[in-house]
Design a protein around this nucleic acid. Structure first.
Lengths: 271, 271
DNA sequence: AGCCGCTTGTGAACGCAGGCACAAAGTCGC
DNA sequence: GCGACTTTGTGCCTGCGTTCACAAGCGGCT
């Protein structure tokens, strides 16, 4: 994260990071607690949640930090620390109750309510996104699609009719859209972004390879395939340089690679 | 960075398992320089490259760190430091020559050669990816598609015929695939990953929401739409808490028990 | 030529995140 | 009921990445 970064943020989030209050206002639990969760930890909480859901479906009722950390591919100490950010829901000597933990993580991640999603730009990607009717992890129903192409307007994609981007303000308000996904060509991205923001959308997932300019109160996350590919390319090149010592010996060592290496902008990577 | 007096290869402090390089290797400045580039900086280099390319197309010949940093949405000091990792190609008092810098960044990112890409899983996302014939930023031609569905085998998508995943070893070797993209349902991801790795692919871009287990020499980057959405959701929730103290309280729509884990997530750009 | 202003490159401080190790806290067995 | 064992929660240290601030270097102007 995208890593990140993740990270690094990410590589991308809001440019200006409000450095929070120098003096912790006493202990207003609710707000401070939520604010205190590091971005990287939030990303991992989502991973834990997936692992927990899987365990739950398998009928597992209790899980230790060690087990869960393996499933999530992280260090167990890190996992415990991450969980401690949201409270103390474990039982020493036993572990965590899967059901309880799922509930708490969902609460923190704001998954107790649905977040309607609008996808702008119904090209290849937009099409693919619209067809994820279930959308990953449920709780994020796509309820609106936008484009500028007259041929697309009115045509339903994945069961949802495409509206013209001029209708963004009204549709966003009507359907209570909280998340906007930009899947347009780069040239249109900023324009679309501005329209979404004007319509009241405060969270944007941007697939276009542009750095969006947004007000401070808007949260942007960026997914950039070109960057991902180039990072991989970098590692290929780096590897090629190392050709001298210890060549391609390394057989399929399926063993546990205990190295918890790098991590970027929210996107985990395992060398 | 480390002005190591003696080449102390020995473990210095913690007796645990140092994730350091197994073999001390030498310290050839040239190679070490590449290795010394922080992961986060690599991600940004890709962003800079895009901004530089844009400038170049506009006929701009020289750019200052200040200008470029604005275009890339980062701090100018950070940009200069990032660029310093790859060498000193700027001219004090003037700035950077756009053409030269593009060349150097491309060199570091290994973009002087083409990287053939294979996409596994021709569902919604795989389809979208395959149709990016140009693929983002070019230099990453998709030359192979794989799936298990007999109805898809042989059918060309985006000009490339789909092969059965049993053919991975041969096709990967024949077409010199260096990057594998996993766009399968989560249940198949690890299996596909193993096959790619066995076939010699060392870089994988994973769109499936699973933590892949791979040998140390394989580089994996993960793009997880569900995680991205949940992070955004978190920020919505945090924001809501800041205004009014609203506790859990079920949302308006109870949303029937969602379907089980949905599919993969997808993403790209330039639809 | 010499000065001046601009921009790079980087040393150093700072802050945050990661990992270790241990005390606290609970369970299980006897 | 008590001790031994298990596992959580966290203080502390370490290392990385970001930011600041400034000296060094280069071009242009006089």
């Amino acid at each position: 994260m995208v890593a990140e970064p993740g990270q690094g943020d990410e590589v991308v989030t809001t440019p200006a990071e409000p450095p929070a209050v120098p003096h912790p206002a006493d202990e207003p639990a609710v707000r401070e607690r939520a604010r205190a969760i590091p971005e990287a930890a939030v990303a991992r909480l989502a991973i834990y949640l997936r692992a927990l859901t899987e365990l739950s479906e398998q009928g597992v009722g209790t899980v230790s930090s060690e087990e869960l950390s393996i499933a999530a591919g992280v260090n167990s100490a890190k996992l415990r620390k991450d969980l401690s950010y949201i409270g103390s829901y474990g039982t020493r000597g036993v572990g965590y109750d899967v059901g309880v933990l799922i509930g708490q993580v969902e609460r923190i991640l704001g998954l107790t309510r649905n977040h309607s999603v609008a996808v702008v730009g119904i090209g290849n990607l937009g099409h693919a996104l619209a067809n994820y009717n279930g959308f990953p992890g449920r709780g994020f129903p796509v309820t609106a699609l936008f484009d500028v192409d007259p041929d697309l307007i009115g045509v339903p994609v994945g069961g949802i009719p495409v509206d013209h981007i001029d209708d963004i303000p009204q549709v966003v308000a009507d359907r209570d859209i909280t998340i906007g996904v930009i899947a347009t060509p780069p040239s249109a991205a900023q324009e679309v972004c501005d329209r979404l923001v004007s319509a009241g959308v405060q969270c944007i997932l941007n697939f276009a390879p542009v750095v969006l300019q947004v007000p401070d109160h808007v949260e942007v996350r960026k997914v950039d395939l070109a960057v991902e590919m180039q990072i991989l390319s970098f590692h290929v090149a780096r590897r090629a340089d190392e050709g001298s010592t210890e060549s391609t010996a390394a057989g399929p060592d399926g063993a546990v690679n205990g190295t918890g290496m790098s991590e970027v902008d929210g996107m985990v990577m395992r060398p």
